[in-house]
């Protein structure tokens, strides 16, 4: 396998592996962020009800 071919093979495997880990973290932590965002928006809505 030539240098560039090997480089792309390693890059594809590494990127997919690390992205899988990132996706797991975002899935869990993102859910908590959504709960916090909705709570903040509800607070804002109570402070500033629509006219």
């Amino acid at each position: 396998m030539s240098g560039w071919a090997l480089f792309w093979v390693v890059t594809v495997y590494t990127a997919v592996g690390v992205f899988a880990l990132l996706a797991l973290w975002v899935t869990v932590a993102g859910f908590r962020d959504i709960q916090r965002m909705l709570a903040e928006l509800r607070e804002q809505r109570e402070d500033d009800p629509p006219r």
Binding site: A29, I34, L41
Partner: peptide, 26 residues
Amino acid sequence: RVVTGLTGYLVAGRSLGTALSVATMT
């Protein structure tokens, strides 16, 4: 049901945490 005002509508009340930011950017 939770959005009010222009800031809420256009930039989600500027309340995005890091993980949710990455999810929405992606």
